[in-house]
């Protein structure tokens, strides 16, 4: 059972972790993340990296769709911009990974602003369709601008490097991906403690009133696009370093829907939800793979059904969560926590 604790200052009251219990749990969590690669086997390590990348991208999309209310079908395209930027830079410049990732994020953010420009005149679903158009154009550029993107064959990369260190294995990549993911989620959390985050939410809840209360809609919508696609760009860059190859098919439209699903399943407008959703959605295909492997001895056809089964599960999760639990996994998590915070004095 947790009891209330009084704060001495507004500063303490507005901290991310307000109670000592929370601080201890968070420290334990960070320690577990640090320890994980030393105890996990190769497969788990691989999954850990995938989840890390997905967490960054989902957090970005959550900022745009969950918090600002601008639905985007362009997330995969923005990730592609980041991925290709990193691939091109590593082939042509030999810059170390922090620089290439930063540039990947910035270029994606610039593209994001460009895509967000129609929000000057259109909103809601029309904007979603503008992002869809953007993803069509980006895919076209990835496939056709051969001198830069390598056409349909794509580009392959050298491993990420910094100060003579190279990060070739999943073990090495884990120590780039996961700290970055933690940092970027915390940065997003910070945004929502300040006026910028409040402006985003205000636009989502009532855009016209927000404007009359002093929020420049275009400015903040574009900022949300930029921030969101920056996250996507960095995630795409990490994706490129992790798989060491990017092709137009690395970033299909279905990937945009995957991230939208992660945001919905996790909980729109909730950063913890984004993390849960990213992990959940990344692990589902893996769980299905395990299940298929287990079933194959009895049903030899099982592997054929895996990919359509996955489509059905993704679709059903989107529909199911929207109808039955619109606040997503985050809400379920809070319910469990509320239960334990009063436990055992409540039945």
């Amino acid at each position: 059972m947790r009891i209330g604790d009084a704060k001495q200052s507004y500063e303490a009251d507005e901290a991310i972790l307000t109670s000592s219990t929370q601080k201890i749990w968070f420290a334990l969590f960070l320690f577990a993340l640090l320890l994980f690669p030393f105890v996990a086997d190769a497969y788990l390590l691989y999954l850990g990296c995938l989840v890390g990348i997905a967490v960054i991208s989902t957090t970005g999309l959550n900022i745009l769709t969950g918090f600002t209310g601008l639905i985007s079908l362009g997330q995969a395209g923005f990730m592609g911009v980041g991925g290709y930027t990193v691939a091109w830079l590593s082939a042509n410049t030999g810059l170390p990974f922090p620089v290439t990732l930063l540039l990947a994020g910035l270029l994606a953010a610039a593209v994001g602003i460009l895509v967000g420009l129609p929000s000057l005149r259109v909103k809601g679903l029309y904007l979603a369709i503008a992002t869809l158009a953007a993803s069509v154009f980006l895919h076209f550029i990835f496939a056709e601008w051969e001198s830069v993107t390598g056409g349909m064959g794509g580009l392959s990369l050298e491993p990420a490097h910094l100060f003579g260190l190279t990060f070739q294995s999943d073990f090495g990549m884990y120590f780039i991906i996961v700290p970055l993911a933690v940092l970027m989620v915390l940065a997003a959390k910070n945004v929502f403690r300040t006026r910028i985050g409040r402006a985003f939410i205000a636009i989502r809840d009532r855009d016209i009133s927000a404007e009359i209360l002093g929020i420049n809609l275009l400015h903040y919508k574009l900022m949300s696009f930029a921030l969101s696609s920056f996250y996507a760009g960095v995630a795409g860059g990490l994706f490129a370093y992790f798989f060491r190859v990017v092709t137009p098919e690395s970033f299909p439209l279905s990937m945009s829907i995957f991230y939208l699903a992660a945001v919905i399943v996790g909980g729109m407008g909730n950063l913890l939800g984004g993390i849960l959703g990213a992990a959940f959605m990344t692990l589902i295909p893996e769980a299905l793979k395990l299940l298929t492997a287990a079933l194959t001895p009895f049903y030899p056809n099982a592997p054929i059904f895996m990919s359509p089964m996955l489509e059905i599960i993704f679709g059903a999760l989107i529909v199911g969560f929207l109808i039955f639990e619109p606040h997503g996994l985050a809400e379920i998590w809070h319910r469990i926590r509320r239960f334990f915070s009063l436990w055992p004095f409540k039945n």
């Binding site: 829907i257 699903a261 359509p308 489509e311 059905i312 679709g315 059903a316 999760l317 989107i318 529909v319």
Partner: peptide
């Protein structure tokens, strides 16, 4: 809209 996207995904799988 997102529900209809989910429905599309289900139909493709089916």
């Amino acid at each position: 809209v997102m529900v209809t996207i989910g429905i599309a995904s289900i139909l493709v799988g089916v």
